[in-house]
Design a protein around this nucleic acid. Sequence first.
DNA 1: TTGCATGGGTTCGTCTTCCAAATCCAGACC
DNA 2: GGTCTGGATTTGGAAGACGAACCCATGCAA
Lengths: 152, 152
Amino acid sequence: MVPLSRKSPVPPERCNLARAVNEIGDRWTLLILRSALYGVRRFDDFQTELGTPRTILSGRLKSLVETGLLDKRTYKVEGRRARPEYVLTDKGEALRPVLIALTQWGDQWLDGEGQPPISFTDTQSRQSVRTAFVTEDGREVSVENMRIVLRR
Amino acid sequence: MVPLSRKSPVPPERCNLARAVNEIGDRWTLLILRSALYGVRRFDDFQTELGTPRTILSGRLKSLVETGLLDKRTYKVEGRRARPEYVLTDKGEALRPVLIALTQWGDQWLDGEGQPPISFTDTQSRQSVRTAFVTEDGREVSVENMRIVLRR
DNA sequence: TTGCATGGGTTCGTCTTCCAAATCCAGACC
DNA sequence: GGTCTGGATTTGGAAGACGAACCCATGCAA
């Protein structure tokens, strides 16, 4: 169990977790990113899938573009006029491991019965895949063997 | 880049990511969990560190207890009356990898200059630690080598 | 025993955000 | 000219966030 502390080693203002939470830490934003990671790009597709109020969706998409998580482009279907689409940037794509880890947390602690609806396997070994901590050269480290390093 | 899709393979109602987001996906809740993972347990310590309005903090702590992420206990300091404290449960502790992954995302994409304020090393090899996907037996898998498996 | 300090809240009134429904708008097609 | 379609903005009411003040039980000191 974590020992009692009166305050965090890194204050929230300097903490990149706190910053990340400020950027993506709200329900709709996370759900939009979830859909985006599955390839959803269009306003009405987000809206239909998530049921997000159109006002909110419009605002969240704008924020996500401003913070560089989504790229607003134009797509054109033959015989339709050009429309915007919202595609994940590298920065947005880099959240995939975070959201997969959160999904697996949900699989374990929220679902209860049965198999999770989605999981992943390694195309080579065909083994199932989970998130873990690894050293630089890719060997797994357990949480007990991790030491916190504070800068300064 | 992710191919275009008109909807997600798992609808939000069945998705454990969406469920997880409903349970912990708001700013204050995530910030409270962050502090809790560092060992913060007491009302005023959360309040001082995060600046959360006391009404909000009170409500969020209550929810976190109800959803089983925090355990409300009593602590007693010599010469002080007994007071409640909020300690992470196993379910809450299991979020650590998720939040570390998010921290590392923030280190990479939000900070810009310099070293991150906090990082981790393996006590054995002294190498730095990152989050990654691994097979059951702990060998790393890259995102490109991961195949989605849908149940049913 | 009055007074004050402490920690963990609740109450109150305001102020912001959320939200659903309606409307707007530009291009494509008929 | 009328209508469809996708991507929005506007509007007004409902919900949630917020800051300040207050409450309350205990311990301690005068």
